[in-house]
Simulated assay, not measured.
Amino acid sequence: MDAATVTSPRLTDLRARYQGLSGQALLEVMIRHEFAGKIAVVSSFGAESAVLLHMVAEIDPTTPVIFLNTGKLFGETLRYRDRLQERLGLTDIRAAGPHPADLMARDPNGTLWNADPDACCFVRKVLPLERALKGFEASITGRKRFQTSARTGMDPIEEEAVRGTGEPGSATGTRFKLNPLAYWGQEELERYTDANRLPRHPLVKDGYLSIGCMPCTERVPEGGSYRDGRWVGRDKDECGIHLPLNTGGDGI
């Protein structure tokens, strides 16, 4: 099972009933009605995170926000998280990080990002997120179709296999995934940010257009595309938390 093949009667029903909804309108029905008390936001507190988080806070600021603290983030990202929490009034930000036993077994020296970035993402992002989402029926992401080739066909409402936290590639059920900004582009994001006077990630003005972990994120040269600063020189443009279970590597 993976996000490309999982299709249940409920998914078909949700897509039929809410076809055409996006942004805050889609979030409203999902947070307040369809998955009330069983939904969480997944946020990197990166370059565009303020838009989604502001929408969620306007609906229900107590909605859990899962923040993947990989141990390799920019200090600016951590400070930006704190600033947004204060500005938006978010009351339940949950930091999820790699388990010490996983790091000891797979990345004892902290250099796995250089030798095998897919494995590093699996230990520091994929496994911690699956543990953090246990018990939730749905997650909310800030993904957009324009970001990567893997996201160009993304639907605002998806259903994905729930990853097991044991053997890579294992699945234990399904969970819904909501992408309310799927059809948004850079212009819409900029307009929303300006209209609501949202603070911007401090690294954006320095040329970081997509911001992840410090060792694997670089400035984008003038005229470069959105993801050119991520995993430079690698055949990689996704960390793995949004990819199907069967895409190779360590289940990522």
Rank of each mutant, 00 (worst) to 15 (best):
D2V: 02
A4V: 01
T7P: 00
S8H: 04
P9S: 00
P9Y: 02
L11V: 05
L11T: 04
R15I: 01
A16F: 01
R17T: 05
Y18T: 01
Y18I: 01
G20W: 03
S22R: 07
S22V: 05
S22W: 06
A25E: 12
I31R: 10
H33R: 12
H33E: 15
E34P: 03
E34F: 10
E34S: 11
G37I: 13
S43I: 04
S44R: 07
F45M: 02
F45S: 00
A50V: 07
V51I: 14
L53H: 03
M55T: 10
V56C: 08
A57S: 14
P61C: 13
P61F: 11
T63D: 04
P64W: 12
P64C: 10
V65F: 12
N69R: 11
N69I: 04
T77L: 02
R79L: 09
D82M: 08
R83Q: 14
Q85Y: 08
Q85D: 07
E86P: 00
R87E: 12
R87W: 09
L88D: 01
D92A: 10
R94L: 14
A95N: 15
G97R: 07
G97T: 09
P100Q: 05
D102I: 02
D102L: 08
L103C: 02
L103V: 04
A105P: 02
R106N: 08
T111A: 04
W113K: 03
P117S: 12
D118C: 06
K125W: 10
R131L: 09
A132M: 08
K134C: 06
F136Y: 15
E137C: 05
A138F: 05
I140Q: 03
R145I: 04
T148P: 03
R151G: 03
R151K: 04
P156Y: 03
V162T: 08
V162A: 01
R163L: 00
R163E: 00
G164M: 01
G164R: 00
G166R: 06
E167S: 04
P168M: 03
P168L: 04
S170P: 01
F176P: 01
F176T: 05
K177N: 07
P180I: 07
Q186S: 14
Q186G: 13
Q186P: 01
Q186T: 15
Q186F: 13
L189S: 09
E190V: 15
R191H: 09
R191S: 07
Y192M: 12
T193F: 07
N196I: 13
P199C: 08
R200Y: 14
P202V: 11
P202C: 09
K205I: 13
G207C: 13
Y208P: 00
I211V: 14
G212E: 07
G212Q: 09
C213T: 10
M214F: 01
T217I: 11
T217R: 09
E218F: 15
R219Y: 14
R219T: 15
V220I: 13
V220Y: 13
P221C: 14
G223W: 15
G223H: 15
G224V: 11
S225F: 12
S225V: 12
Y226L: 14
D228Y: 09
G229F: 12
W231L: 14
V232L: 13
G233R: 15
E238Y: 09
L243H: 06
P244N: 03
G248A: 09
G249S: 12
